[in-house]
């Protein structure tokens, strides 16, 4: 008989593992990826592939530099794929191919591996990549086109939020909620269709990869915040529904804010985190210089996570 194993209890482990969690996220992102490829055409598809490939390669390189073993397995555990795909979702449809490369590089090498790799990063890697690109290449990052079926030559257009910021409410109202929902309005690759994102998030909720606290609190707070202003002056402020379905709220609240590594551990903390994200997004959209504030809101709240964690510890049994 071979040597039998001695180890610490428990000797049974769940069949769920990191890879499954991460590829569940990839599966959940697929509907949105398909829709953006359909609407924005081959270039969008190429951006997604480039971003994912760069992310995985960068991950492998960083692991090699860090002297880790099992590089192939760790790089393909899905976390880099998710980061790359989310980064691509944050690019405008006409973004040059090199923005996807630079964004993924920054996301994986700087936002993730300088902190120690998976599990140790303070900020959501894809969002750091996006913000880095937005600040470094503002022109390329804010050139929007109108989604048409499998488009090959793009028609320039403004996003609903951009229109709201620069041209005022009336221009923004030209976009129907329905269009926002289905994805027939200009925007980032992943932002166009709220329906596709909701379908993906429902899958994640069923698979218990994400919890309801962050998305509900995020979107709820944003609705309440913008709703108050809408009620005060409907002539100046857009209605809450417009705010919820336009821009990156759905993508951010459902997929970026819910990133396990950069969100609080406890349910109570997740509620605070969601509320904070919603509030900051609202403030930036209504009063800030940028038309969109989701990325900044989530990054700011990421920074607050250690603090939230410290003050929202669960109450232990028997006290």
């Amino acid at each position: 008989m071979n040597n039998i194993v001695v180890s610490s209890s428990p000797h049974l482990r769940t069949t769920d593992n990191l890879k499954r969690v991460m590829y569940d996220v990839v599966i959940a992102l697929l509907p949105a990826a398909v829709i953006s490829a359909v609407f924005f055409g081959p270039h969008a598809l190429m951006l997604m592939i480039i971003a994912v490939a760069t992310a995985v390669l960068t991950e492998a390189l960083c692991l090699k530099i860090a002297g880790k073993s099992n590089i192939r397995q760790t790089a393909l555990d899905g976390s880099a794929v998710v980061a790359g795909l989310l980064l691509a979702f944050n690019l405008p449809p006409t973004a040059p191919w090199w923005t996807a490369v630079i964004g993924s590089l920054v996301a994986i090498a700087i936002a993730k591996h300088t902190f120690g790799g998976l599990g140790y990063n303070l900020f959501n890697p894809a969002l750091v990549g996006r913000v880095f690109l937005l600040i470094s290449f503002p022109v390329q990052m804010t050139y929007w086109t109108l989604p048409t079926f499998w488009q090959t030559d793009a028609v320039a257009a403004a996003t609903p939020l951009g229109a709201l910021k620069t041209d005022g409410l009336e221009a923004a109202q030209a976009f129907t909620t329905q269009g926002n929902f289905l994805g027939t309005i200009p925007g980032c690759l992943g932002e166009v269709s709220a329906v596709a994102l909701l379908v993906g998030a429902a899958y994640l909720l069923i698979r218990k990869v994400i919890t309801w606290e962050i998305p509900v609190c995020f979107i709820g707070t944003l609705a309440v915040f913008t709703g108050i202003f809408y009620l005060v002056d409907p002539g100046k402020y857009a209605d809450p529904l417009f705010h919820i379905v336009s821009g990156g709220v759905m993508l951010g609240a459902l997929f970026m804010a819910t990133d396990m590594v950069t969100s609080p551990l406890t349910r109570k903390g997740q509620i605070i985190f969601g509320i904070g994200c919603g509030l900051i997004t609202g403030i930036i959209r209504l009063f800030g210089g940028y038309p969109e504030g989701v990325a900044f809101a989530i990054l700011l709240m990421n920074a607050a996570v250690p603090l939230i964690d410290r003050h929202t510890e669960v109450k232990k049994f028997g006290v």
């Binding site: 998976l118 599990g119 669960v314 232990k316 028997g318």
Partner: peptide
């Protein structure tokens, strides 16, 4: 592997 802070252990702990 590293902790990915999914919080499942916190949710599952019967002792809070």
């Amino acid at each position: 592997g590293p902790c990915i802070r999914c919080g499942r252990c916190v949710d599952g702990c019967p002792m809070g």
